[in-house]
Amino acid sequence: MVDIAERPTRLAAAAAPPAPVDAPAPASRLLGLGGRALHRTAALLALAAVWETAPRAGLVDRVFLPPLSEVLGAWGQLLRSGQLADHVGASLTRSLTGLGLAVLTAIPLGLLIGWYRPLAELLSPLLEVFRNTAALALLPVFVLILGLGETSKIALVLYACSWPILLNTVAGVKGVDPLLVRSARSMGLDHLRLFQKVILPGAVPTIFTGVRLAGAYSILVLVAAEMVGAKAGLGYLINYAQYNFAIPDMYAGIITISAIGLVVNQLLVAVERRFSTWRVDVTA
């Protein structure tokens, strides 16, 4: 129905423009790249600017909120004295141990629950109760039973990290396309191989989403745990600095925690991508 005579000219018109556009491209692209970077960091830069100027201008009490430069100075000092490394080391050891243990226990348990319906029916009421109990509400219980040492802190992280991993693993196993299972069964795969070759790879992306969430939790609850009866760790640093009125140190601790949270999340996102390219591409 389209006028055939018209088509060639349209094609030609479509092919022609790129040439003149190409010439100024490098410069504008560089400008665009810089513009985009600026756009992305604008809010952060604004926050830094406000943090720096507001105390100096007397808008807030500079004792309670020292300018950013002072906080960064305190951070530098903590770094040089090696204190920061000690605290970060203590915190990361705890959170990574807890996260690691959660991965090791919650994934197999989740696979079992997702795969065996009777087990799911048996355990789901219990899981619902625990899932809806805030981890930090249980901190006193952990301290009572496991003492003030490392065990209770790691146990708390383990507890908090287990839920997102467990629930995502269950969802991942249940969410595997039943058609894939039928297809694999039609090829005579036994249960074990069906699980290994279809269920597990199919559930991996969802499981990793759970691990990424757990990574964020591991740091969130740890800091709170470290505020109770710890001798090292970022939570301890923040709490201790506040007691001693070393306010810039306190903020330095807070900034460090944010930074670690960001880095852990980015790392886990990268790992997640690596393991689920086939799904990321579909949704992207």
């Binding site: 039609s186 090829m187 199919g202 799904r279």
Partner: peptide, 19 residues
């Protein structure tokens, strides 16, 4: 009596493993 490799099934929705 059960599935077997003497019969291959082709499904409407392909049933390919996406990974």
């Amino acid at each position: 009596t059960g599935p077997g490799l003497d019969r291959g099934i082709v499904f409407q929705q392909y049933a390919l493993l996406p990974w």
